[in-house]
């Protein structure tokens, strides 16, 4: 999938909302830059555990 198709795939998440072409361009630029940021954070986080939390009752006991 090329870069344009990837962006199109992300923008389908905004379907149903009438966004102006100018806004869409601004949004797309930021989405693309966010992918750069995620890649940096992924490299930074290498070796760190994945975090997940169970939503357990506060009074839980083993």
């Amino acid at each position: 999938m090329n870069a344009k198709d990837k962006m199109t795939a992300r923008l389908t998440l905004l379907e149903g909302v009438n966004i102006s072409p100018a806004d869409l361009e601004t949004i797309a630029d930021e989405i693309e830059d966010n992918q750069r940021i995620v890649a940096e954070l992924e490299a930074f986080a290498q070796g760190t555990p994945w975090i997940s939390f169970q939503v357990q009752p506060p009074e839980k006991k083993a």
Binding site: R10, L14, F44, A45, P49, W50, I51
Partner: peptide
């Protein structure tokens, strides 16, 4: 447009 896997990657950075 942030995907679930990207969000989880960010949380991993947060944990570090």
């Amino acid at each position: 447009a942030i995907t679930a896997s990207e969000y989880l990657t960010v949380q991993r950075a947060r944990h570090r």
